[in-house]
Amino acid sequence: MEDHHIEGKDSWIKRGWWLILLIIASFLAPTVLSEFYLSVLCEALVMSLMALSFNFLFGYMGQLSFGQAAFYGLGGYTVAMLLTKAHFNFWLSIVAAVLVAALVGLVVGIFCVRLRGIYFAILTLAFGQLIFTIVFKWHNFTGGDDGIQGVFPPELLKSPIAYYYFILLVFLVSAFILWKIIHSPFGHTVVAMRENSERTEFLGIHIAKYQLIAFVIAAAFCGLAGAIWVPFYRSVAPSYLTWIKSGEPVMAAILGGPPIFLGPILGMFVMTFFHAWVLGFTVYWPVVMGALILAIIFFLPGGILGFAQEKVRQRKERNHQLQKK
C-alpha cells in the first residue's frame, strides 16, 4: 500500500493539493485543448479507468489478467446494441452494460480464481479470446468484423465537450470508489492475499471467494469503461476485445508502477498521448511502443512512479543519515 505512515487530518490539504489542482485543470481542459487532443484526453480517461480496474487485480491482488479487454468490449457492445437495436434509454444502457460485464466476469471468474500466476494470465487470456471469437463470428447478432456503427449519445451529451465532462465525472467517481475499496477492509484483505495467501487463509479468509469478488468488481469497471467510450466514438468493433487491447492496461500499469494507485493512470496517459503524438509522423506505432516497453522494463524498474518513489525514499534516507551525523 502506498501510504505506510499513519495520517494526520490537517496534512490532507498539504498532501493533496496537487490532486486538487489536477482535477481543476481537467475541468478547464476543454477551454484550451483542440478538439483532437480533447478526444485523446477522453480516450486516456476511459482507458485509465480500464487500467485502474485491471490494476486492482494486478497491483493489489497480485493476479495478472490478460483478458480485461473482453469485459471492456462487452460493455461497449451491450451499449451499442441496446442503443441501436432496442433504442433503449442511454443511462439504463450504461447500467445494463456494467451488469453484463459483471455477470460474465462472475462466470469467467469462477473458473479463473482457482489459478495463480502465469496460469491465471493464460486462462484469462483464453477466456478473453473465446469471448472475442464469439463476438467476431456471430455475425447476425454483433455485426461480425464490421462492428456496430451509429451509436449516438443523448442530445444532452452530443457535443464533444459535454461528453468529455460526462467521461470525466464517471472517471472521477469510479476512481474514487476504487480508491475507497482498496483502502477498505476488503482491499486490505486483497493485499494480504497477495502478500501471503496461505497465512491469510489461516486467518479465516476464503481466498477464492475474495478473488472472485475482486474479479467481478474489476470486470464491472472495465465494462463501464467500454460502455462510456462507445457512444463517444459512435461505433464499436471486435478489435475492442482482442488481447492487444488487453495488453494495454498491463503495459500502463507496469509503465506507471503497479503498487501505486495513480501508477496505471499516469502510465495510460503517457501511452495514449505518446500514441497520438507518434501517429503524427509514423504509422509504425507498435514498434515504438515495443521499444518504449523494453526501455521502461530495463531502465525504470518499478515503473515511473515506483522509480520516483524509490529515489525520493533514498534521498530521505540520506538526509536522515546526514542529520544523525
Partner: peptide, 22 residues
Amino acid sequence: RGWPEQLLATYAIILIITDLVK
C-alpha cells in the same frame, strides 16, 4: 525479475516483430 515483466518484454517483441514484418 518477476514473470509479469518477462511476459511484457516478450509482448514488446511481438509488437516490434509485427511492425518489422509489416
